[in-house]
């Protein structure tokens, strides 16, 4: 369970997160949506202490994260970066195996895990010795997901993980991840500005605007409409898509 209590963060007098209270029960798939500058990524990074909040506490399974060494905390949480963030000088296998390596797991065990993870994210084993620059965009995203899962974390944080992909690979990868999430019993928190993607993936959607949570609910409920016009405006896109698809299909 991830708990944020009264979390605030600001830069140069400008508030990015204002008094955030959020509880994410174990096993859920929560998607944070909002426009640019809404504070989604900042919120995500406070969970694994990449960003320290100015006020408030973040705790995981009842333990406050500021009481844990940041590097130890981060090794226990998978993280997929917005711009993939693979190490350009390391092979695919080295990238995937990095956190286990930091944890001191032996090489044979790491090799076995890498092999399994490549299978899990549906990449051919032959890619293991390639460098990130020798992969396609979709392959890189899959490697990033595999890396996030390598130390068998119970929580995975993802920042626009499928952003740079074409719609087909994007849908496929999102589906594959959703399956992994269920199989591995993960708690997943994903950030996206794409509400359609949020609707397809999430158990629960949290909408951020101007550093505050303005809506929090299951996708179906949010699609019905909301009192806050900012939330409504966001969910207008999937609603219109749905209407148009029905019209076209009906005609």
């Amino acid at each position: 369970m991830i708990e944020l209590k009264s979390v605030s963060k600001g830069y140069d007098g400008h508030s990015v997160l204002r008094d955030i209270n959020l509880t994410i029960p174990t096993g859920r798939f929560v998607v944070l949506v909002g426009g640019s500058g809404a504070g989604k990524t900042t919120l995500l990074k406070t969970i694994n202490a990449l960003i320290q909040p100015d006020r408030g506490t973040v705790s995981i399974d009842g333990v406050a994260t500021h009481a844990i060494e940041p590097h130890a905390l981060r090794r226990s949480i998978g993280y997929v970066f917005q711009d993939v963030g693979l190490f350009p000088h390391m092979t695919v296998a080295q990238n995937i195996g990095i956190t286990p390596q930091l944890l001191g797991i032996d090489d044979a065990e790491i090799a076995e895990r890498v092999e399994g993870l490549l299978k899990l994210v549906a990449l051919p084993a032959g890619l293991a010795l390639r460098l990130p620059s020798q992969l396609s965009g979709g392959q890189r995203q899959r490697v990033a997901v595999a890396r996030a899962l390598a130390a068998a974390p119970r929580i995975v944080l993802m920042d626009e993980p499928f952003g740079a992909l074409d719609p087909v690979s994007r849908g496929k990868l999102a589906d594959d991840y959703r399956t992994l999430h269920r199989h591995l019993g993960l708690t997943s928190v994903l950030v996206t500005h794409d509400v359609t993607e949020a609707v397809l993936l999430a158990d629960r959607i949290v909408v951020l605007a101007d550093g505050e949570i303005v809506a929090d609910g299951v996708p179906g409920a949010l699609l019905q409409g909301h009192e806050d016009p900012r939330v409504n405006a966001l969910f207008d896109a999937p609603r219109r898509q749905e209407r148009r698809i029905r019209e076209v299909a009906g005609a």
């Binding site: 694994n48 990449l50 940041p70 590097h71 981060r74 993280y79 963030g85 350009p88 956190t99 930091l102």
Partner: peptide
């Protein structure tokens, strides 16, 4: 690239 450095922090490097 700052993104690579953040990734290094993110995977749990000291």
């Amino acid at each position: 690239d700052p993104a690579v450095i953040e990734a290094a922090r993110g995977v749990g490097m000291t």
